[in-house]
Write a protein that binds this DNA or RNA. Sequence first.
DNA 1: ACCTGAACACCGTTCAAGT
DNA 2: ACCTGAACACCGTTCAAGT
Lengths: 200, 200
Amino acid sequence: MQAPEGLNSRERILWAAATMLGEDAGSALSVRAVAARAGVSTGSLRHHFPRQRELIDAVLGRVYDVVLRDDTIGDTSVPARERLLTSVQRLLAPEGPEIDAREGWLSALDRYAKPDATPEAREEFLSIERELRRRVEVALKLLQDEGSLPPGDNERRARFLLTVVNGTSISQAFPAPGSRLQNEIDVLRIAVDCVFETKI
Amino acid sequence: MQAPEGLNSRERILWAAATMLGEDAGSALSVRAVAARAGVSTGSLRHHFPRQRELIDAVLGRVYDVVLRDDTIGDTSVPARERLLTSVQRLLAPEGPEIDAREGWLSALDRYAKPDATPEAREEFLSIERELRRRVEVALKLLQDEGSLPPGDNERRARFLLTVVNGTSISQAFPAPGSRLQNEIDVLRIAVDCVFETKI
DNA sequence: ACCTGAACACCGTTCAAGT
DNA sequence: ACCTGAACACCGTTCAAGT
C-alpha cells in the first residue's frame, strides 16, 4: 500500500499511520513501517514528529475527532447527568465505521497490557488515555459553564471518571454471569452521581 | 551488583530479576540486563525461560507469595473513611519492597484475557474478583454495623469500589509521568468519599 | 541438560549532508 | 525548511557449538 498523491509529507505520514491503526493488532506504528507506507524517509518523519509519541498523539487526535464528532453533550433538552453518562459510556465503546471492534478500548487494553509489550505500545495506550481524558474534561467544562455542574476541579473529576471507565472495561473483558451490561452502566451511573453530588 | 554465589543459574536469574523489579520504574527486565546481573549468558537465560514473559511470570509468581494478611478494618481508633481507603488500597497494591503490583496485574490480564485463554483461566480470574468483592463487602458491612457508614446497598457499593480499583490498576500498569501513586490514591479517595456521602 | 556468544531482525533516535 | 539514509544503541529470539 502507498500513500495517495497530492498530499504533503506530513499528511502522508498521518494517513499511513491511520491506515495501520485499522489493521491487525500485530502491526505496531514503528518509524520505519509508517515512513515506508507514507513513502518518506525516517528522517523526514522525525522532522515532522520529533518523537514517536508526537506522531501517535497526532494520529489518534485526528481519529477520535472523527469518531466522537457528534457528541450530544450540549443538548440541554436532556438532563445534564444523563448527558454526562452517555458521554462516558461512549468512551467505553466507541462506535462508527472508522473504528471497528479491534480499535476499541478493550482491544487496546488487550494489545498493550501484555508484560512483554514494548515501551512504544505503552506510549500509544497512554496517548489514547490522554486524549479520552481531555474529552471528558471538555464535557465537564461545558456542563459547568452551562450551570448544570457545580464548580470543582474538572481535571480531577475527569481522572476519576476515566478510572471508572477503565475499571468497567475490565468487567467487560471478563463478562460475569448475569446482566453484565446493566451492572456496568449502573457503576458508571454511580460515578456520574458522585461527580454531581460530592465536592470534588 | 552481582548475584550471590552458591545459587544455580535459574535461581541467580530469578534473584537478578527480582532485585531489578525493586529499582526505579525505568529499569526494564531486558534479557541482557538480567543475564548480566545474574552472571550468565543470554542463552542460558533463554534455556531456563524460553520467552521473556515466562521469566517475568516466574519472578512475579515468587514475589507475590509474600502477600498481605493483617486487615485493620476494625481499628476504631482510625476514622472509618481512612480504614476503608486503606482496605481498598491493599487490594490494589500488596505491600512490600519487592512487590510490583503493576507487573503482576499485567501478567494476570495477559494470562486471562487472551483470546485463546482456557475457560478455566477465565473462571480463575472471575473467582479472584469475586473473592476481592466479597472482602470489600465484608469491610463495608463492618463499617455499617459499627454505625460509621450510612445504611445502603453494600453489594452495589462493593461492585463500584472494585471497579475503581480495577481502573486504578490500569493506571498503575501504565504509569504516566508525574506523581502517579498520588493520583491513584486520590482517585480511590474520591470513590471512598462517594460511598460515604452519596446515597447508594 | 546446561551453557555460550554470535547472529538475526527488529526498535527509536541522532545527525551530517543534501535540496 | 524539508528531506535523505547511515549510524548508534538498544530489543527479543534463534541457533550451532561447546561441556
